[in-house]
Structures are given as structure tokens and as C-alpha cells.
């Protein structure tokens, strides 16, 4: 199911007036347009829904894991039009540290895809190295990389979504848009307070076995952003991600500090957002191979 279908489904479930006002389909048998039994059913369903809304407003609705992630999905979707200036610091297990700065341009594309251009600004060895992502869906995407020393744009073949993004502790999945919720199963383990914020602790399990067989995520209530994710390979904790310094920018809650650690190698990557701008509405020309070669110019 794509995101549009998903949203339609949400609307049909949550938008009560829309649900009530939707006329029932005409009955074929007997040639009668109006069917009493059908009308009774609609009235009954509407009554149940109405009662449910009222009750949840009074008692507080117990959300499902899926519903939590639908909220997260919504927030992440809003982030898709943006320009970000980022500092990335890679720490190896021996204490060595390498810093790099990069600019990221992102644009939502129809129907649920997105385009991303990442350009390295420093260190000098990596200046003007860039990546271009054209995602049709979360799983289907084309990826190119440009190395100025060779003056060549190279296509990166379809990789495992969980593969390391060029030595960092981020995966290709961590760049770009939100995943398709239908590919996962969600269940709330419990509610917990993390970094002073009430959270849902949700277990996320991919339906098809992937590198990480399950995730435990802490989703901040009200903000609907993930504050922490533990990535497991079967029972072994493989990677952890912490999202801190959350600020609301243009009504979008945004974590300004990300810290991802590979527990297996001891390698760690810290990502700090220096500046972020939403609703950028970049033109498609920015996300071309030509633009990649010209460092976004």
C-alpha cells in the first residue's frame, strides 16, 4: 500500500464527517435505490465510531504501535522539503576522530518519492564529493556518487538498505524519507520517560528478514519523533541511535543532534545540524547528475 492509500485509509478511519457523509453504493438487487437494512448498518457504525471518539476523548485513547508510527511517518514526511547544513564527526574505537561538513538538499517528489543531494564541503580531501538520490519509493531508488578527482559520476548499485553509508554509522535508509509502514509490524511494549519526555517504547519488526531483525524505538508523545532506537540482530544489540536537542522549526519537531553507535565495532558517528530550513521548494534542476558534478551549482 502506498502512502496515498495509507493516508486515504487514515482519513476514512479518523475523519468522522467524511465517513458519515460518504453515500453508500447503490444496491443492485431489486432495482431499489434505497435500502433500509443498509441504512441501519451505517447508522450503527456511525454510532459506534461516535461513541469511540467520545470515549477516547474522555478516557485517553490507547494507541497501537502502528498508529504511533503513522504519526511519526507524518512528521517525517513533512521534513522532506528542506536544506540542512550538517557537521558529521566519525569516531573510531581507538579514539580517532574525523570531521566533515556537508550540505543536504531534499525535495519531495510525487507520489511518495523524494530527491536528495548531499554535498561535502570539508575536509579538503572530500570537498565537492556528492551523492544524489532519486527515490521513487522508500525501497526503490537510484543512487549516484561524484568524485571530483576523477570527474566521474558513478552509479551505486542497489544496495541493502541497511548497508553502511560510506564508513559512517548511518545506513542508506537514514538519508531520505520515511519507510513504508506496511513493511513492518509494530507493537507498543510500554510507555516510558526518556530525556524527560514521555515516550512510547515500540518494537518494530521488519516483515521480511533484514540485517536488523528488530528495532526498539522510543517515540516522544506529542512530538512524534524518535528519541532513541536500538537495532538488534536477533538478540544481539548491533547499533544504537540517539536523537537529541529537539527543536520545533516551522512547526516541525527536529532533532538537531544524532548519535549513532555501532556496538559491534565500537565505531560512532555524531551528526549535528548546524542549520535547517523547511518548505524550500527546490527546483528539479538541483537534483540532476549535472548539478551533482557542479556541486549544486
Amino acid at each position: 500500500m502506498n502512502r496515498k492509500q495509507l493516508l486515504t485509509r487514515q482519513e476514512s478511519r479518523l475523519n468522522l464527517p467524511a465517513a458519515i457523509s460518504t453515500p453508500p453504493p447503490p444496491r443492485q438487487e431489486g432495482g431499489r435505490f434505497f435500502n433500509v437494512a443498509s441504512l441501519c448498518k451505517i447508522v450503527w457504525k456511525a454510532s459506534v465510531l461516535f461513541l469511540t471518539v467520545i470515549l477516547s476523548a474522555v478516557t485517553g485513547h490507547a494507541m497501537s504501535g502502528r498508529e504511533v508510527y503513522e504519526k511519526v511517518h507524518e512528521v517525517r514526511s513533512k521534513m522532506l522539503d528542506r536544506k540542512t547544513e550538517v557537521t558529521m564527526v566519525l569516531f573510531d574505537k581507538g579514539g580517532g576522530k574525523r570531521s566533515r561538513t556537508l550540505s543536504e538538499y531534499c525535495k519531495r517528489s510525487v507520489p511518495e518519492g523524494y530527491k536528495v543531494l548531499v554535498l561535502f564541503r570539508s575536509p579538503p580531501d572530500l570537498k565537492d564529493v556528492g551523492f544524489l538520490i532519486h527515490a521513487r519509493t522508500f525501497a526503490e531508488r537510484d543512487l549516484w556518487v561524484y568524485f571530483p578527482e576523477y570527474k566521474r559520476v558513478r552509479r551505486i548499485p542497489t544496495t541493502s538498505q541497511d548497508d553502511s553509508f560510506f564508513g559512517s554509522d548511518f545506513s542508506y535508509d537514514d538519508f531520505g524519507g520515511p519507510p513504508n509502514l506496511d513493511d513492518y509490524r509494530f507493537s507498543i511494549i510500554k510507555e516510558e520517560v526518556l530525556d524527560g519526555r514521555p515516550c512510547y517504547k515500540v518494537e518494530v519488526t521488519p516483515k521480511v528478514r533484514r540485517k536488523y531483525t528488530r528495532y526498539i524505538a522510543w517515540v516522544a508523545k506529542e512530538l512524534w519523533v524518535q528519541l532513541k532506537i536500538d537495532y538488534y540482530q536477533d538478540k544481539e544489540l548491533y547499533r544504537t541511535g540517539a536523537f537529541k536537542d529537539i527543536k520545533v522549526v516551522d512547526t516541525i519537531p527536529t532533532p538537531f543532534s544524532l548519535n549513532v553507535e555501532n556496538r559491534k565495532t565500537g565505531h560512532r558517528t555524531e551528526l549535528t545540524i548546524e542549520s535547517i530550513r523547511y518548505h524550500t521548494n527546490f527546483t528539479d534542476e538541483l537534483f540532476t547528475q549535472r548539478s551533482l558534478e557542479r556541486s549544486g551549482r
Binding site: 566519525l90 573510531d92 580517532g96 574525523r98 580531501d125 572530500l126 564529493v129 556518487v145 568524485f147 578527482e149 558513478r154 552509479r155 551505486i156 548499485p157 548497508d163 553502511s164 560510506f166 564508513g167 555501532n262 559491534k264 565495532t265 565505531h267
Partner: peptide, 26 residues
């Protein structure tokens, strides 16, 4: 970038000690 499809090695940290694969490529 493509050779892993044929040969059994990769630039992943688990398989090799390559502190900065991006720098290696660049």
C-alpha cells in the same frame, strides 16, 4: 562500488579495517 557482487569482500567495517571508505574512494 559494484565489485562486491562478484567477489566476497566489502568495505564494511565488519569485513575490513578501512576507517574511511569515502576517502578511499575519493
Amino acid at each position: 562500488l559494484t565489485d562486491g557482487q562478484i567477489r566476497s569482500y566489502s568495505l564494511a567495517q565488519e569485513n575490513a579495517d578501512i576507517p574511511d571508505p569515502l576517502l578511499f574512494l575519493a
